[in-house]
Design a binder for these strands. Sequence first.
DNA 1: TAATGTAATGCAAACGTTTGCAAAAATCAA
DNA 2: TTGATTTTTGCAAACGTTTGCATTACATTA
Lengths: 351, 351
Amino acid sequence: MSKRTEKTIVDIAEELKLSVSTVSRALNDNPNISARTKDKVKKMARKLGYRPNALAAGLRNNKSKTIGLIVPRISMFFPATISTIIQNKLQEYGYNLIICQSNDSYDQEVALVNTLYSARVDGLVVSTTLYTTDFSHFDVFKDNNIPLIFFDRVPKDYNVKVIKGDDYVGGYTATTHLIERGCKDIVHISGPLTCNLYVERVSGYKHALQENKLPFKKTRVFYQELTRDNAWQACEKIFAQTPYPDGIFASNDTTAITIMEYCRKINVRVPEDLKIVGYSNDPRTEIVTPPVTSVDQYPTMMGERVVAALMELITSQASATAPRYSQEIIPIQLIARESTAGMVKAGGKKK
Amino acid sequence: MSKRTEKTIVDIAEELKLSVSTVSRALNDNPNISARTKDKVKKMARKLGYRPNALAAGLRNNKSKTIGLIVPRISMFFPATISTIIQNKLQEYGYNLIICQSNDSYDQEVALVNTLYSARVDGLVVSTTLYTTDFSHFDVFKDNNIPLIFFDRVPKDYNVKVIKGDDYVGGYTATTHLIERGCKDIVHISGPLTCNLYVERVSGYKHALQENKLPFKKTRVFYQELTRDNAWQACEKIFAQTPYPDGIFASNDTTAITIMEYCRKINVRVPEDLKIVGYSNDPRTEIVTPPVTSVDQYPTMMGERVVAALMELITSQASATAPRYSQEIIPIQLIARESTAGMVKAGGKKK
DNA sequence: TAATGTAATGCAAACGTTTGCAAAAATCAA
DNA sequence: TTGATTTTTGCAAACGTTTGCATTACATTA
């Protein structure tokens, strides 16, 4: 193939009548190489167009200066934002990031974990699939003491470093907000309970109802992948019979926005007849009419904390005594917008 | 560090009293290893928890089974969608993808190109910075005959494989559409002209005007980074004096949506008083009120073509005779929505 | 000038694979 | 059985770095 132009430190060494070790040290600014030699070496490196081979260095050092990231999909606002932060922060530390998407498929996740291990990443950051309940495929990383961090969608009962949102409080806050605005019959559209964060949000929802002496009705909670299609279908069920609910707490913004669309179609007014709260504070919540109340998860903060924690793990890797797991909780904040404005009318509404 | 649990093919070989070469071949399904040995080897590999070291293999083979991708940012709809496609497709071919963001900074782009080269990626896919006009930092890849593909934001006057949208036709179609809907005074908000695709769209805009005997006025074209803030500021200028335009062709959807927001604030009705066309067919165009007409760029098709082209380059790499550059153009399609509905009123409008 | 200490460089092994070539083992025909 | 094939395995070098240890060059002091 190519024109054999790949220069190595050996070429530099020969050119300069130095040994490869000296060249290597010079390029790495090793203190016991004289300034003069360093200079010569670097000049020659530039002149020859030398490019370090990270594979070789990685093999020798047993570290790749590369971090793996697995998220369900990078096209969703929340993971996308976090990926961006992680990527940019990591770059500052001189690390590359291999971003992978599991597409919410357990099998793909397993496969990715293995190839990332093969790539000898120096750390792995994961937000799991909706359906990951067995985490043993991550054992390789634990067993080999390679930094492993989960964020947002984190494992239950698997000892590991975790950075998550305050989902219980999120669910509680969203529901309480609806109640404060006068809602008495609140539907909750949740993700599947295989994913623990939804369990917590449901639990927050439930407690808010209890605290306000409102009944928790099983028929008022939906568990489904939070896609547009599913949201639409849920609406068809919800509005197939009266009484309509007067509030909906949706566990993501896609769902919330879709519900609004449906409401427009069937002439249910938001917020007058129905109040809606979404989750994640996706920027789309601001551009729809009316703007949707949502729960901000501080993705920037979460991303920064992930990188900080990762770097701690990496630097403390030698002292294997440090606890390699802990749970860190990022706060949430409810952003009230028009979709939950005003008080609901006394009598409620009907078809 | 770790507990020295890293098993290698040497361990397998010793355990089985075979040579490492046999083990290596067995694991790679080399045809002249007997089925029996292959079986034994694979079983033992599993038993020992062997994980191939991609770095070592990469060093030896001079290929990393990894592709680099540089995009301005993965949080924007178009590059995000394409990245997703590329990632998923590449996975099928057994390649990893290192996704990097230049954040539209030229210096970062240069740095990324270098580290990706160091990582010895087997190919590089790029959508450049808005401000990249010198492409010499990509020479390393060309010189070493490593597959290099640009998409969407592609270089001008730099011989390389290019897959781009039909931006001239896009600009032309969007403008013609506005004219057909009755607009006579059309503002165009373009990206900076350092990025060639905007040059082409402007040129399409211009020709559409000419063809319809409408004057091209310099004061009616804005060149700016297409952010929300800039869009808002542009609106302040545009609507600071009468007559208002009756149509705006914005070169991205963020801008189009922001304009609509501004119009609502100052009580300009869309589409009655002003018609708006965006670009990229971001899903947000569908959820705003009114939905925004936009130009679909078929990101899925583009992503698939990128991967296809990449694979061609990789497999034909040996035969360095194949032309390593060419231009492929992905069609566009105007998606008409409410923001350009109806005919504009005869007399036009004013403050 | 010799002795001593320090600063700078070199040697060679190692990281875990793959692969061309040579050698051994198995198979077959006579 | 022997020799000729064919199938299967092994040897050893190579990929481009880094690093512990040994060695050389230089500077300093007596």
